[in-house]
Amino acid sequence: MPIPDLAESFVGAVNKVTLGATKEQGGTRTSTITVGGAKNVVYAGSPGDAGEKPVIAMDVLDVKPEDWPDILAEPYGDVLDNPAQWAKKCIDEFGADLICLKFEGIHPDTQDKDAEHAENVTKQILEAVGVPLILWGCGNNEKDNLVMPKVSEAAKGENCLVGTVEEDNYKALTAIALADGHHLITAAPLDINIAKQVNILTSDMGFPLEKIVTFQSTGALGYGIEYAYSIQERQRLAALSGDKMMAMPMICDVGFEAWRAKEAKTVDAPEWGAAQDRGPIWEATTAVCLLQAGADIIRMRHPRAVKAVKNFINQIWK
């Protein structure tokens, strides 16, 4: 029986973004990573329209995490107070595609570490691993504006992905990322209009749109994931319709959010299944769910969850 033709052509596509700079490109990375490029919505058209394979960035914190549940900390053994070893383990043993260095320790409410500390950790990690880096501030605007420009400078020429810039705090980091040859993460609090506005603001400063990755904020499974899910789907549709201000690849912060969930971190709840399975499954599922909505880069934490998500990705993007 003849089936109606479904061929649908879109005028736009998601931008392709390449992170990392090798020696020839003026950096010291041993490999680069390209994401984005989707030409249709998820699973529509042919597999060739799905763009580049989504990648997993494993989190490395600049200081030893204080509040990680045992089940999350356990696979890391004794490297959690050594960011360089930690990063190396993520790449060599856990199969991370890249590293997201999250500067938790510079936040005034945690250890209030200074810029020198942040620069040192950045350099150590650049030395320890050859993959591209994501450099992510602590979320306190004042402190990030003091520290992140120094971090950017310490990784100058490495073509990192640095962030985040927001609607009311974008100038300092945008300027320095531009000067140091990095890509930029624009962030919005689950609001697609603000998301577009931040892209407009940074591009008004001369930052190239094709070097931006968007962060729409992430909700964990069971804790608002549907908001992130729909905004990501809408961003993809906007990109396909030709909206250049929304044609960026997307990053999600899955590890942090998933491990805040009661279901992931509560140990004593046998009716929910074994605790050692629950956290990794909750994290993996949050990630896979957001992949259905078009995520390109996923920040993750538990190696078992990373393995499960990579296994999924490898079945879909061949």
Binding site: E226, G273, I281, T285
Partner: peptide, 20 residues
């Protein structure tokens, strides 16, 4: 029939099928 696995799937359904 692993409880962690099924609870997780059911939560996906709950979220994706919620009224936007």
């Amino acid at each position: 029939t692993d409880h962690a696995a099924v609870l997780t799937m059911l939560t996906v359904i709950m979220n994706v099928y919620s009224d936007p």
